[in-house]
Design a binder for these strands. Structure first.
Lengths: 231, 231
DNA sequence: AAGGGTGCTTAAGGTCGACTTAATCGCCCG
DNA sequence: CGGGCGATTAAGTCGACCTTAAGCACCCTT
């Protein structure tokens, strides 16, 4: 059973985008485009985590937070806009388990969601679908907390983009990741002709650092015409 | 028998939220929305810990603290508003065991409650794992009680902000702390473009005082594009 | 076997973050 | 009211990192 996540944002584009990323992560996503819909969903359904936009036309996010807390203990992450008055934002985000400032990188949001679920499922009542802070595969080890990577025990220093690429591929190991998806997850921008090359150069640097030979790669393999995969 | 906790805050929303979080942790929670109610509860009931808002319409939080201390020894944690630099010192010197600045993360509050209860119950009937007042790592030693720091045994004098930064990094050792998180934790304000530089200057002073070279740091290491880490 | 598309490599340039230094602001205290 | 200390802001340098471009190698199709 996958974790169920409630996403609340009146901006359809943002809500849908977030929904897509979370779905790709293997979550069951429910989207509400208004505070009213969200309130209804909160009362009628069970979730493992909620993502609330602070600014809603009908109900503000803080009220929804209270609605949730009245009968549930699952983590709540608030989405706040950067422009609005900071004091108000702080007040509103009071009581949330975490909050993310818009615009955010998809990977950052995903990371925070995972972090909260880790804490919730390990301390809470639910059976643990243990999301470990360190990811291990073959001789490759990724520590999310420290953002560190080791290959056969030897530490490897990666740049932010290299790390993001590796993490995304590792978290989707066993699945082919289209270059387009990879680009959007890491850069949070639309894929353009030419972006392809950018990704490739980073892949190359990455492979160099983790000791991967493009001709006979141990970790990051290319799927011709589609993208990359870690098996 | 669960520990009993008294929560005092005139803002119903906040008090209720705190109550929910504590209940979820397994505590018996009693909430007072006014200083008068709180005073009554203090006299009539026994508690293991109290959370007091400093700003109350009718009675000052410090007065409640005195009321408690007149006949009880259980830990008291003060909730202070943003501007708290002065309140902090005053509250502590007046006998509060800890303070939490609003807005706070629920997890932080819970952690402090647990810490205080551990200390309190370890002196009482219940044997418990001791909460170490001093944090040690390599040659760095941080004494929370005395707010003092030594490097290889040599005392180092830090300003409040420097100390806060070091303490936060030390408490999260092994994890990369994003500059934004660090800023929010120390300043209790939202991160703005330009805050970055402020953090850096303090990091520089800090490194200077603890004998850290930015090029090859022993304690505070930088993770490019993200933040800082003590390993 | 040839050709077009795709992936790999290399190198150069531009950008951005980290560090440093120094000047200014604000506050407490004498 | 001025001195001193700490906090903040500004400006400048340096180096790491990212992007872009171009040529080469490889794969797949016909």
């Amino acid at each position: 059973m996958n974790e169920r996540i409630l996403v609340v944002d009146d901006e359809k584009a943002i809500a849908d985008l977030v929904g897509i990323y979370l779905t790709k992560e293997g979550f069951d996503v429910q989207i509400a485009y208004s505070g009213a819909d969200a309130a209804k969903a909160i009362l009628e359904q069970e979730f493992d985590l909620a993502l609330l936009d602070v600014m809603l036309p009908d109900i503000d996010g803080f009220e929804l937070l209270h609605t949730i807390r009245a009968s549930h203990t699952y983590p709540v992450i608030m989405l706040t806009a950067r422009d609005a008055q900071q004091d108000k934002i702080e007040g509103l985000s009071l009581g949330a388990d975490d909050y993310v400032v818009k615009p955010f990188r998809p990977l950052e949001l995903i990371a925070r969601v995972h972090a909260q679920l880790r804490r919730y499922t390990s301390y809470g009542s639910r059976a643990q679908a243990t999301e470990l802070p360190t990811l291990q595969l073959d001789g490759l080890e990724i520590n999310r907390d420290a953002r560190s990577v080791t290959v056969d025990g030897a530490p490897v220093r990666l740049t932010p983009i290299e790390y993001s690429i590796l993490l995304y591929l590792a978290e989707h190991r066993g699945s082919v990741v289209p270059v387009e998806d990879l680009f959007r997850a890491v850069w949070n921008e639309d894929f353009m002709p030419g972006s392809n090359n950018t990704v490739m150069v980073h892949i190359r640097h990455l492979r160099e650092k983790i000791g991967d030979d493009a001709q006979k790669p141990r970790f990051i393999k290319n799927v011709w015409g589609v993208g990359y995969i870690i098996e």
